Simulated assay, not measured.
Amino acid sequence: MSALTLRIRRLAATAVALAAGGTLTLTGAAHAAPATPAARPAAAEAAPATSAPLVKGLYQSAYSERNHVLWATSAVGRPPVTRSALVKVDPRTMTIRASYTPPVTDRATGTVEAVYGIDVDDRHNTVWTTNTRDNSVAVYSQRTGKHLATLPGVAHAREVVVDERHRTAWATGFGDGSLVAFDTRTYKEKKRVTVEGAGPTGLAVDERTGTAYAADLNGNQIIEAAPGAAKPRLIPTGQGPISLALSRDGRTAYTADQKAGTVSVVDLRKGSVVKTVATGEGTLAVASDPRTGAVAVADRTAATVSFLDPRQGTVVKTVTTGANPNHIEIARGTAYIVDKSGTGPQGEDRLNRIRVTR
């Protein structure tokens, strides 16, 4: 998809092990379309979920409109991680077209540069990933799956989101409270914003303005990094924000508040929470549908996806998925949810698909 194509992608949350051996949940990338006019969010209906096994260790997915492909990341186990893959999935048949192994970083142990967070750059036909354990991000070719570059310096890299209009890839560094921007043509770092004590996780970008937003898990706030701003703006939200999405007009943010089991609806102009919606235990991932404006939320503990009318502050539909839904990607009116259920014939995690309509 070119930079002129209007699009919104929302990614939600996935689990990534900390270097110290604990666990933390990882959220995903989101975009506000560069030229979509303001519109009232509409309630949406959702068909029952269908699912198919993919691979073990699923984390995130990202849809390529240019290639009509769903890309997914997987990584299995704690260090040394020797099993990780970038997986190319047919969204219609929910089957794997190709699988690519990240580079080996330690031949003695077989450790690979494991991939976790993901987004696509259709303008340059590439895939960007976060390599959480290696404190880096990486770039791959969508056409061949070839590893093109590894970009270090993102401490406990969590999420990555591509702003095609401004040729920028943003990544969150949970380890040092940073948001790091890279040039998608040269792969060089172009900006770094750091908030002391913050733990940025979920990430979104408004492609109309080039403003990046990150959910700060540590500070119960949103970090706003606007072009030309001398310092980041901090906007309060709910308890334990782990994932973040934007409305179609970029004026509203939605945060999945893991500790509270809610979604906060945040007016970005006023800098305040205007609605709080209870969704279910283990609220982990939030995504917004670019067609209907509906908001979808993955409740990890409840093994459901809740569809919201954010204007009314209500849940309008709840759909059961596989156990431990971890991440949501919405494209062309369809929600794709990867889970960590391990319920496939060989213990694979599953891809769940839900059609969203007005």
Rank of each mutant, 00 (worst) to 15 (best):
H147N: 13
E65C: 07
R291E: 15
Q60F: 07
R40A: 14
K270W: 05
A215P: 00
G238H: 01
L11G: 15
P290V: 09
T314S: 13
A35G: 15
R133D: 11
A62G: 11
G202K: 00
K340M: 15
L244C: 05
S64M: 01
V87M: 09
T292N: 06
I235P: 02
G28D: 05
I242V: 11
D349K: 03
R300G: 07
D309P: 05
L284M: 14
G57D: 00
P41T: 09
L351N: 04
S264L: 07
V161R: 10
T320N: 11
E45S: 15
G177V: 09
L24E: 15
N125Q: 15
V277A: 03
I337D: 10
A229E: 06
T262K: 00
N220G: 03
G240F: 00
R358H: 14
E281G: 11
L246G: 01
G219P: 04
G28P: 00
D216W: 01
A157R: 02
T318H: 00
R233H: 11
K259C: 06
L18H: 12
K190D: 09
P48E: 06
T318A: 04
A230P: 10
D176H: 11
A19V: 12
A3E: 10
R350P: 07
Y116Q: 14
T5L: 12
D121N: 08
T276I: 10
D289Q: 00
